[in-house]
Amino acid sequence: MSALLFFLGCAGAYAGAYVTRARHRLPVLMLAAAVVGVVLVLLGPGVEAAFRQGIAPYSYLLGPMTVALAVPLAEASEDGARKARVGFTTALLLVSAGLSAASIVLVARWLGASATACASLAPRAATSALSVPTSEALAGSASLTSVIVATSGVLVGLVGPGLLSLLGVKDPRARGLALGASGHLVATARAWEESREAGTASTFALIVHGVLTVGVSFLLHALRFF
């Protein structure tokens, strides 16, 4: 099986899921990846080398896309400086990033996970554009990191709003911060559905929490947590 077919197949799966998103209402990434994943299962392990070769060029797109996140962050930080106490919010997100990375590594280690798995899990609380290169830099598995990030995003997108309501968190800014910090892009999209205020707070949290998580992941690695 040619690497070019895998390259085109991934693009086609994404395009199909994106164009029909209004009909299926599923996260585009999850649907497209599920389609490609099913094809890979059907083809068996013999095509792994061609598949890896086929998806390699996509890694070059991650760089400019990571850079592009600076624009919403700059916009959100300008808004936040007026409307909220950015110092408190950033401190809260730093604590949260530390808790997220430390808890996932400690629980995973306690349950017997390898150092490679821990390195893949540590940046879970950052969006894929940040967590995947971080995982690779820490000698983790980019594939495992990507799926854990996507899965936790879907989990928060589905149960997050209900859980926050159970906890009595009604302020849209608080809900947006919690959704963006814990559920990345999927939960941020959900926050935008709730209100503009929640969406703005979620975008701010998505990016600031992601950047802080990268820093915390490297710190934990330097401190030999994994």
Binding site: F6, C10, Y14, L29, V36, G37, L61, A142, S143, S146
Partner: peptide, 17 residues
């Protein structure tokens, strides 16, 4: 940013391995 998910479809599907 809208198409942030595009380059990670393959990596995510690679979790099969």
């Amino acid at each position: 940013v809208t198409h942030l998910a595009f380059p990670i479809v393959g990596v995510t599907a690679g979790v099969t391995y």
